[in-house]
Computed example of a mutant assay.
Amino acid sequence: MSAPDPRARVVVLAGPSGAGKSRLAERLHTTHGWPIVRLDDFYRDLDDAADPPMPRHVGLGIIDWDHPDSWHASAAVAALVELVDTGSTSTPVYDISHSRAVGTTTVRARPRDLVLAEGIFAAEVVAQLREAGVLHSAWCIHHRPLVTFVRRLARDLKERRKSPMVLVRRGLALMRAEPEVIRRQEALGARSARAKDVEARLALAVGPRRD
Rank of each mutant, 00 (worst) to 15 (best):
S2Q: 13
D5I: 05
A8S: 13
V10K: 08
V10L: 12
L13F: 01
P16Q: 02
G18C: 13
A19R: 01
G20F: 04
S22H: 08
R23Y: 11
R23M: 13
R23I: 08
E26L: 11
H29I: 01
H32N: 15
H32E: 14
G33M: 10
W34R: 08
D41P: 01
F42Y: 10
R44K: 12
R44V: 05
A49I: 02
A49D: 08
A49F: 02
A50W: 05
P53G: 11
P53Q: 15
M54Y: 07
P55F: 04
V58C: 04
G59M: 11
I63M: 06
W65F: 14
D66N: 13
H67W: 10
P68Y: 06
D69R: 09
W71A: 11
S74R: 15
V77W: 06
A78G: 04
A78D: 15
A79F: 01
V81R: 00
V81I: 12
V81E: 01
E82L: 01
L83M: 10
L83E: 06
V84F: 00
D85Q: 03
S88K: 05
S88L: 04
T89V: 01
V93F: 06
Y94W: 02
D95L: 04
D95H: 06
I96W: 14
S97K: 01
S99C: 12
A101S: 14
G103T: 09
G103E: 11
V107M: 03
V107K: 02
R108W: 00
R110V: 07
P111H: 10
P111W: 09
R112W: 13
L114F: 07
A117T: 05
V126F: 07
L129Q: 03
R130V: 08
R130L: 07
G133K: 03
V134M: 05
L135P: 13
L135Y: 10
L135A: 12
S137D: 14
A138G: 14
P145V: 02
P145C: 04
L146E: 10
L146S: 02
F149H: 13
F149W: 14
F149S: 06
V150D: 07
V150K: 06
R151L: 06
K158Q: 12
K158L: 13
E159K: 09
K162S: 09
K162Q: 09
R169N: 07
R169M: 11
R169Y: 04
L172N: 05
A173V: 04
A177L: 07
A177R: 09
P179I: 14
E180N: 14
E180F: 15
R183Q: 14
R184G: 01
R184N: 03
Q185L: 01
A187W: 06
L188P: 02
R191K: 07
A195G: 08
V198Q: 03
V198D: 02
R201T: 05
R201P: 00
L204F: 00
A205G: 04
V206C: 08
R209V: 14
R210F: 14
R210I: 15
